[in-house]
Amino acid sequence: QDVREWRMVTTWPKNFPGLGTGANLLAEYINKASDGRMKVSVYGAGEIVPAFEAIDAVGNGTVEMGHGAPYYWKGKVAATQYLAAMPFGLTAQEQNSWFQYGGGQEIADKIYAKLNCKFFPSGNTGTQMGGWFNKEMNTIDDFKGLKMRIPGLGGEVIQAAGGNVVNLPGGEIPPALQSGAIDATEWVGPYNDLAFGLYKSAKYYYYPGWHEPATTLENFINLEAWNDLPDDLKAIVEQANRATNQMVLSEFVARNNQALKTLREKHNVDVRPFSDEILTNLGTLAGKVLRELVAADPLSQEVFDSLVAFRAQSITWAKYSESAFMQARVLPFKY
């Protein structure tokens, strides 16, 4: 019986908390469920190709599959970045609903065909944090001249707010923050931020992560390799991705709970909310920036329109469901 030995390259350092372990999980599910007919092995960033070359390596058949985040490919196909996270966009559950029932998967497949890949959502970080700041952020004017490391669409918004978006390799972030080379950085959420030790270099930890309300992680598969799979293996890969998608989100929720506690209680981190004034202004800027960006590219416009339509419905429903309940849950009663 022929065994399909596949390599999975990732944009994450090997075993990276939450993100890299998601890739490991996916490989494990596929290997077990296929009863040895598929054998996927995972490679960290740089082991076969550097992180941001993963999609080319999959697209051109150097390896069969990859794990990453869609916004890394915006230089190649601009529309990918909207699949990852949209400033003031959808929550994790809403994002998943959009993929399964809102036409998201179909649009994603269309976008990824341009990269010669099949796309699956394969993990979600949940709502991230706003970032680590060495300046108090009281009004939108405080963003003027702010030197912040913030990639992606969030960076576009910060730039529109008058900020100075800086690009730094990971290892240089803590010393740069420490010395004042940058004033602020976003990273992921408490779980990863604690691991990265950012609390040692910054004064304030702001929330919420308006720029990445729920970042979708992805599994991309070389189209020829995917089409060559028999239907049962296709189903196994698909279900393995659904399971991974759920497990990664669950892991983030569970670990963020603990990590936030550690940050606050053990490291006395000053955790602060962005004011409504800041969020209102950032939200307005986000809408403006996004609309301008997508206007330049029909595929981006298509995915954006679909997301925005879904977002409008979700906001209403969430107001009557999760938002309402979450507020109810923290009312001052004894439980």
Binding site: N60, G75, K76, G155, V165, N167
Partner: peptide, 19 residues
């Protein structure tokens, strides 16, 4: 060669904001 050609076909740009 194919790596570069693919990049030309996509008129690939920076993956960074403002790149």
């Amino acid at each position: 060669y194919p790596y570069v050609i693919t990049s030309w076909k996509r008129l690939e740009g920076s993956q960074e904001t403002g790149g």
